[in-house]
């Protein structure tokens, strides 16, 4: 079961990377970035998971908790990903205004 999750993580990550290299629409590229990030979030959540564990708030009578640290990490990672996504979306609006297209292949004024 663990192996399946790890393979899913790697698969999702490289799916995102593959999409980054093959898709041409800026919005699709942003979605691909989010897929890459989601893969890592899955990985972080997997790290926190304990079989039979409950949510990490200390109560009487409960012995096994899931790991709070990596859940916190995934929360932070979500925040960072969200802000990057927001920035990217803003950039793509501005890029559309300047270049009149959302095709990444047209963004080639800087080269060589």
């Amino acid at each position: 079961m663990e192996l399946v999750i790890y393979l899913t993580v790697a698969g999702l990550f490289f799916l995102g990377a593959y999409g980054l290299m093959t898709q041409h629409n800026l919005i699709k590229l942003i979605i691909c970035l989010n897929i890459m990030e989601a893969a890592l979030l899955l990985f972080l959540v997997k790290l926190s998971y304990r079989i039979g564990g409950t949510f990490p708030i200390i109560r009487s009578g409960v012995e096994l908790y899931t790991d709070p640290v990596s859940q916190a990490l995934s929360l932070t990672a979500i925040v960072i990903g969200a802000s990057t996504t927001a920035l990217l979306l803003a950039l793509s609006v501005l890029v559309y205004r300047e270049y009149g297209t959302l095709d990444v292949r047209q963004l080639r004024r800087l080269r060589g």
């Binding site: 800026l26 590229l29 970035l33 990217l88 950039l91 501005l94 890029v95 300047e98 963004l107 800087l110």
Partner: peptide, 22 residues
Amino acid sequence: NKEAEGLEGAFKYVLMSFGGSM
């Protein structure tokens, strides 16, 4: 400066750099 080239540079920068961060 929100000039065309600056935006293009920034966009490329984000795409590459985000892969590295991941």
